[in-house]
Computed example of a mutant assay.
Amino acid sequence: MTTLLESDEHKSLRAAVSAFARSHPRATGPAESRHFWQEAGKLGYIGVSLPEAYGGGGGGVTELSLVLEEMGAAGNPLLMMIVSPAICGTVIARFGTDEQKRTWLPGIADGTRLMAFGITEPDAGSNSHRITTTARRDAATGDWLLTGRKVFISGVDIADATLIVGRTEDARTGRLKPCLFIVPRDTPGFERRQLDMELHATEKQFELTLDDVRLPADALVGDEDAGLLQLFAGLNPERIMTAAFGIGIGRYALSRALDYARERTVWKTPIGAHQAIAHPLAQAHIDLELSRLMTQKAAHLYDAGDDMGAGEAANMAKYAAGEACVKAVDQAVHTLGGNGLTREFGLATLITAARVARIAPVSREMILNYVSHQTLGLPKSY
């Protein structure tokens, strides 16, 4: 499935990833998911967006989102691709020191190292300005000390480190400024607790506690005074990649429903001949295609360096893809009837997975707020 926006190279990449992903059985457990991740890393798919100088493919979010979409369409979406190469890899590539790049990017690119991302907090929710995880300098040593809590952080148990969003206090104004810190998994004072989720996913969710976690001065990524610029360098790719994640899941669900609708015969013809079955599936396909076009636009804008335009498009793409994904999965399950809830067809677990594309990393309501304020110029309600 390609579009007019794609170059021949992109079409070839899409075909190669699709063939690779379809040659592997669906990953239903951590071991299978890890094996798939490692194989994808060896082929260069995980690091396709990272700089060639550090083992990456030299592409951008355009290529990385294409890879994730095709993996999802084959039934093997990798949630950590949104986190490790797209958020953490992008931030380090753009703002990290030479040493941070040498230490982390080659491993992230070939899949041998993973990095998680910690921003969400129990009491902040969608309001990132309320983040209370604070970082202060130890005047005697120059080290950083981090204290705070994070929640709904994916893959911390399999990640070598977590990129933590903390806040430092501006000595002149007293205002808190967001900063990014690399926290290795086994750092003293850095504790994790697995959350009891009903979501069926190979990546686990965690609550993190940082109790005066001591980090060397070079754990800080980028400029202490850069603030939101560095943060959104990772958040816009996160939205684009979440859109690709949702589109891939939606395409997979739709393909299972189409196979079933072509073959399942109850009366004289396959059920797919009936408009009550065919039209909702056609609508699901249209919604997925439209959301994909918006996702491609967002990725192209981001890769072109248009951060402002990419922010708007990334939010729109994530909104559209989340809605399209949920509708496609729901219609696929409905098409199969009772069979849609059996383990054999593998659609029931996608019901909760599809909701992730609506909820995370930003809710559809907050996206509507963004568009109404930033795009339409309407006044804020908060």
Rank of each mutant, 00 (worst) to 15 (best):
M1E: 13
L4N: 07
L4I: 05
S7E: 03
E9I: 01
H10Y: 02
A19T: 15
G29L: 07
H35Y: 03
H35Q: 15
K42V: 09
L50E: 06
Y54D: 08
G58A: 07
G60L: 03
V61S: 10
L66P: 02
V67G: 05
E69T: 04
P77D: 07
M80Q: 11
E99G: 01
G107N: 08
A109L: 05
R113A: 14
I119F: 11
P122Y: 13
D123K: 11
G125S: 09
R130C: 01
S154K: 04
D157W: 00
I158Q: 15
L163F: 12
I164Y: 05
I164E: 10
G166F: 02
T168D: 03
P178R: 11
P184Q: 08
E191G: 00
R192F: 06
E198M: 10
V213S: 12
R214G: 00
L215W: 04
A217M: 01
L220R: 05
G222L: 01
D225E: 13
A226L: 11
R239S: 15
T242Y: 14
T242N: 13
T242D: 04
A244L: 08
Y252F: 15
S255L: 05
A284T: 14
H285Y: 09
H300G: 00
Y319V: 00
A321F: 02
A324H: 02
A332D: 12
A332F: 11
H334A: 14
N339W: 10
E344I: 01
R355L: 13
A360N: 14
P361L: 04
S363I: 08
R364K: 11
E365M: 08
E365Q: 13
N369P: 00
